[in-house]
Simulated scan of single mutants.
Amino acid sequence: MTGTLLDHHDAVLLDLDGTVYRGGQLAPGADEAIEEVRRKGVQVRYVTNNASKPAQAVADHLNALGLQATADEVSTSAQAGAALLAEQLPTGAKVLVVGSEALAAEVEQLGLTPVRENADEPVAVVQGHSPDTGWWNLAEACLAIRAGATWVACNADATLPTERGELPGNGSMVAALRAATGQEPQVAGKPERPLLDRAVSSARAGRPLMVGDRLDTDISGAVRSGMPSLMVLTGVGTPADALFAPVELRPEHIADDLRGLHLPHEVTAVGDQPDWKVRVADGVLELSAASDRPESSGTREHALGALRALCAAWWPVGSGQVTVRSADSTSTDALRRLGFA
């Protein structure tokens, strides 16, 4: 294929934390990369598993960081969770909300009735992250679920990234109710399809691309939705995570950051690389430079080419961890840059 990676897609679905920004700062190159996406007329959708904030608040935060964003470009797991229930319940049905007021508002906006107590006889439970969730909220939901209420979790993320580190996420609270009820919820957020399907539908996209830093949510969600994905290395995912990934977590493209959207398609794609050779033998990947002094030698992009070549050699024949070794000083430098010992 010719052209940039972006040239082959009519919409980009962007994960937020770890992809567009990290904590309170934009990820490297995010502003210029997204501005170029808009300049080319490609639809942008910000896709987040966060169910604690309304879409407008997410858009306001992105604008405060210097990006252009409107509420209709934001797809949240709260929206997806409420929509999943609205497809199954009659208008006015009572839904016990475990989560923020933003989640309750999404439920009400779709014609359902949000409640907070099991005494109100809810026919469904929707559960999203809120730092204010306590034992009482879980107890009310437990009673409703055990009585047969339909249970939807906005997401099942075990942890929530914060500036203090990884803290308990909605999935940890879901796990408590799972243990208490013996039931399994329907999940609306990544890696399940409802959230991504809504984002694609809102963009009226026929050739969407998912972009994210987490294999277990962003990339897995793309695989389940049947769309290609770009893994960026600005968040939690590492080069080793990519190389060792099982089939259901493998991206088609890998780049350092969102500027990879504007690199040539064949550069970001996992596949044979002109600067690198990989030999697979006895459970070992041996990396060697295709020439003694490639022009790009010593650059981060050159090292990423080595990662793409390693993935292309390992994925067809194996899965999981594998020993990687270098055959020359150029490949030794590349593996060091990628974080391989």
Rank of each mutant, 00 (worst) to 15 (best):
A33M: 00
N155Q: 09
S100A: 12
G99L: 07
A176R: 03
A86V: 09
V42A: 04
G3S: 12
Q186P: 00
D132C: 01
G235L: 09
T330H: 05
G111L: 01
L310D: 07
A93P: 00
E36K: 13
H61Q: 12
L209C: 08
L310F: 03
G271N: 10
L196H: 00
G41L: 00
R207Q: 13
E184Q: 13
V107P: 01
Q56F: 00
S220T: 09
G235H: 09
V95S: 05
G339K: 01
E108M: 11
G24H: 13
G169S: 11
A240F: 03
R193G: 02
G29V: 09
H61D: 11
D15M: 02
Q127R: 08
K53Q: 14
L96C: 10
P54M: 07
G320I: 01
A203F: 05
Q186V: 07
V284E: 04
A105W: 03
S288C: 04
D60Y: 08
D216A: 06
A312M: 03
P28F: 03
T268Y: 00
L85N: 15
E117V: 01
V47T: 11
A80S: 13
A71I: 06
V97M: 13
L310P: 00
S201K: 15
A78C: 09
T159E: 13
L263I: 02
S326P: 00
L110R: 13
P294D: 05
Q273G: 14
A80T: 09
P168W: 11
L96A: 09
Q183M: 05
K277A: 12
Q321A: 12
R279G: 10
V20S: 10
P239D: 02
A33D: 07
A144G: 13
R224W: 04
A309I: 11
Q321L: 04
N170D: 14
D272G: 05
V267D: 06
K53S: 15
D15I: 00
S201M: 05
H8N: 08
P208A: 10
A78N: 06
L138W: 11
N137L: 07
A312Q: 08
G235M: 08
G41V: 06
P294R: 09
T181D: 00
A153D: 00
T2Q: 07
D218C: 03
P228G: 08
S329M: 13
L195S: 08
A290D: 12
V187A: 14
G165S: 05
A82C: 03
P264Q: 08
L62T: 14
G24S: 15
L103Y: 11
H61S: 15
G18H: 06
V200Q: 11
E184M: 08
C142P: 01
A93G: 14
A312T: 03
A93C: 06
A205F: 04
A27Q: 01
L84N: 04
V236N: 13
V47E: 04
V324L: 04
A179R: 04
T150S: 04
G226D: 14
L110V: 12
V58N: 09
A176P: 11
S331A: 08
S202Q: 13
A149W: 01
G134I: 10
V247H: 11
A334K: 03
F340P: 02
S52C: 03
G169D: 07
P264I: 00
L195A: 05
C154S: 08
A59Q: 08
A188L: 03
A33W: 02
S201T: 15
A156G: 11
P208H: 07
V187M: 03
L67R: 15
L62N: 12
A180N: 06
H262W: 13
G111E: 04
P54F: 07
V278T: 03
